[in-house]
Structures are given as structure tokens and as C-alpha cells.
Design a protein around this nucleic acid. Structure first.
Lengths: 220, 220
DNA sequence: TGTACATCAGTGAACGCGCGTTCACTGATGTAC
DNA sequence: TGTACATCAGTGAACGCGCGTTCACTGATGTAC
């Protein structure tokens, strides 16, 4: 997986400092939001001067971009790990919920308010479809979605039949594609409102709504 | 509805300038995001000096707070108007979708990434429950949710029975509460991903997914 | 209708701040012979 | 093992910028008699 060539001490040190910078950046984002991220503030917390960070990142934008990519990566890894240990759709859902609750600002880094000008780096689309592939596998594994029987074939299913490029190369039938999208949006529906605090004040448990939405999906 | 006392010309002028400031603020937010909102930039665009704005708003925070409140208000009004013209759940859903698509940054002002420190003003909770009340009415009007028969009573329904303060005073049975929450989260699931651009690249029509999620809700 | 006064919108200068980023530099760490 | 050199992490000063906000002020608009 990694390079055969041995890491020099300097390289090891560089990697370590880069990691530490990111660590402080994440902390700062969690505290005051991504728009408040400041290189100088990070440097100060690390006990070094502002310009020193330019040895490690080309600038603020590159740092943020890397944090965003890391967040995508960590979600994809979470899904892959869950699937590898035999999780079904519900297992994936719970893994995702745990991932989101563990660090809400990381969730928002990926799924939150987009900055109108900013465009995500190219490699995240690859990571995103990795994630989607795991979900599609789980859907196709359901007794009902695996074969292409017509019981639940809806107008949207027909539409998906004609617009399935995003499931690139995946043999899932339309019913599975449909379920995967429902899965994805329902989870985000509960999570985004919950994490943004729109359920505080209402006294019910968002986790139970999350499960109810999931049950309703797998039972359809 | 309005004050009986006649508005003086000065008051009219003030109201007009305040509105113009907000207009520019909205435009700026739509262009560069809420975190980029700058009083000086607004003043410059209006052809006046920065400090002049302090005649109209106590500061940047008050302006943002008012924009947030306006956004809540406009959503609530959209729901009320739809309900008043006889819309059912699907009608409400489409009204909300239109509202969101008309101005994505306004949507994000209400439902987007929260700034960790910031707390929404107190009056928005009242506006939010206005909105919820309209949805609850529409759910209770469904043949199935109006009476409290037990066909679809789930564990989550039972939980809601004990945590229904948020539906304050509303006589809706648990099944209606449940459906209202599913309604709310499913719409946000599709909309938040769509508006954040997470479906670009996938070629399907998010509007059809939106409708499919809605159908699945009303058919259950 | 005209004058005296109060109200208030808007200005321009100024304050202090923190930001991202550049540059020439010092000093320590690693490399080659 | 020791010396000469190259690499490179980190510093401190500086640049220009735009920000929110305050303050004393001018000049126009409205009000009272």
C-alpha cells in the first residue's frame, strides 16, 4: 500500500507537523466554524510564527481543501469498514449516524452550507461514489431489490433506469438505486436537522425518528 | 393589522432604507455566503459611508439576526398561504420546494451550517411552530391520521405519545405527529443535498426523488 | 406665513484589529567526501 | 571520524487590506409658535 522506500526522519517530522496543524484546524472549526479558520491563530496555538505554516501548506485554501477531503475520506472509510464487518443497511445507517454525531462540524464540512464560489476538489467525487457503491451493495443484497421484479416499480424507478450513470458499473436494478437514494436522503434529513439544532426544544429522541425512517425504508 | 397611526414621511423613509440595506445584504449573501456579509461593502454599494448604516441597525449581528428572522417568517408565510388555498401535504411540500429553490442561500440561512457560538433569536421558535402546526393540520386531515386507530402504531409512535410538547395544544394523534416529522425530515433530506450540490454529476432529477419520497410517505 | 428650534440622516477621520501572504534571514539538521 | 556543503524549518519585519465600530461634526428635514 505505502511506498517501499523508507521514510526519512525529516519526512516523518513533516508529516507529523502537518497532522498537528490539521488537528488544530479541526479544533478551531469545531469551536467557531469553518469560516473562522485562521492560519495565524493556528500558528499561535502551536507556538510558532504564522509564516512557518507555509512550509506545510500553500495557503489557507489548500488547508481547508485538505480538511474537506479528509472528511469525505473518513466517511467513506466508515462505510467500508461497516460493510466489511458484515453490516446491512441498518448497520450502515448507524455507522453514519455515529460518524456524524462524533463531530458535527466534520459533517457540515461535507454536507453543510456550500460557499457559493468554492468548488470541491476533483478527488472527492471519487470518494463519494465509493460511499454510494457500498450503499448500493447493501441494497442489492436485500431479498427484494436483488432481482428486478416489478412489485414496487414506480415512475421514479423508470426515470432512474434512464439516468443511472452515477451508479457507474454497478449492476443494481432500479429498485435498489431508488432505495439507495431514499436511504441517503432520509438519513441526511434527520441528521442535518438534528445537528443544526432544529429538534432542540422538541423533546423527542431524534435517534428513534432516525430508526423509524430506516424501518420504513427497509419495510417498503 | 397595521398601526392605526399614520406613518410620518421620515418613518417611511427609514423603513425604505432599512429594506434597501437588507436587499443588498441578501444579494451579498447569495453571492459570497453569509460569513462574507460586510456592512462597509453594503454601504459602498448603496453609495454611502459605512457608519451611516448604524442609523438603521445596531451592528452586523442585528442585521444578520433580522435576515434570519425574515427567512423564517417567509417560510412560515409560504406554508400558511399554501394551506389557506387548500393545499394538502403534497401541496405544502411543493410550496416548500419552490421556496427553497427560489433562493438557496435563504434556505441555508435557516437550515444550513450553524455557527457554533450563535443562538437564534427567541421569536423564531414561535415562527417555527407556526410552520409545524400547518403541517400537523395537513396530516390530521389525512383519512388515516385523523382518528387514532392502531394499524400503523410503531414504537416511535408510542415514544411520541410521551413527548408531544412540541405539538403544543395540537390534538393530532401520534400517527399524525410521526407523519409530520417524516414529512419534514424527508423534504429536508432531498432539499439539503440538492441545494448543496451533492446531486450534480448524478444525472437524475431531484424533483422526482422529492415526489417519490412524498408519495412513499402519504401511501404508508 | 415666517421664524426659532429640535430632530436626525449622513460624513469623514480615526481606532485597533487580525487577516493572508512575501521576503530576506538565521540556525539547525542531514549529506558527501 | 571529521570537515565542507546543501537542505530546509522557522523567524521577524513588513505589506496592504478590509473589517466593525466610535465620535464629533454638518446640513437638511420637520415641528412649534
Amino acid at each position: 500500500m505505502t511506498q517501499a522506500r523508507t521514510e526519512t526522519p525529516r519526512e516523518r517530522y513533516r508529516a507529523q507537523v502537518r497532522a498537528e496543524i490539521k488537528e488544530h484546524a479541526r479544533e478551531q472549526i469545531a469551536t467557531a466554524g469553518a469560516s473562522a479558520l485562521s492560519l495565524n491563530a493556528i500558528a499561535k496555538r502551536m507556538g510558532m510564527s504564522g509564516p512557518a505554516l507555509y512550509r506545510y501548506f500553500a495557503g489557507r485554501d489548500e488547508l481547508i481543501t485538505e480538511l474537506v477531503t479528509d472528511a469525505y475520506r473518513s466517511l467513506a472509510d466508515t462505510f467500508r469498514a461497516a460493510a466489511a464487518s458484515g453490516a446491512d443497511l441498518a448497520g450502515l445507517a448507524h455507522a453514519m449516524r455515529a460518524w456524524a454525531l462524533a463531530d458535527p462540524q466534520r459533517y457540515f464540512l461535507v454536507f453543510g452550507t456550500p460557499v457559493p464560489g468554492y468548488h470541491a476538489p476533483a478527488d472527492v467525487t471519487g470518494i463519494a461514489s465509493e460511499t454510494m457503491a457500498v450503499i448500493l451493495d447493501a441494497c442489492a443484497a436485500l431479498p427484494h431489490d436483488g432481482d428486478g421484479d416489478g412489485k414496487g416499480a414506480t415512475a421514479f424507478d423508470a426515470h432512474l433506469e434512464g439516468h443511472r450513470q452515477w451508479a457507474d458499473g454497478h449492476p443494481a436494478p432500479p429498485a435498489a438505486l431508488h432505495r439507495a437514494l431514499s436511504f441517503w436522503t432520509r438519513l441526511h434529513g434527520v441528521l442535518s436537522l438534528e445537528l443544526a439544532g432544529h429538534f432542540t426544544g422538541m423533546s423527542f429522541d431524534p435517534g428513534l425518528l432516525f430508526d423509524a425512517e430506516l424501518d420504513d425504508l427497509t419495510a417498503r
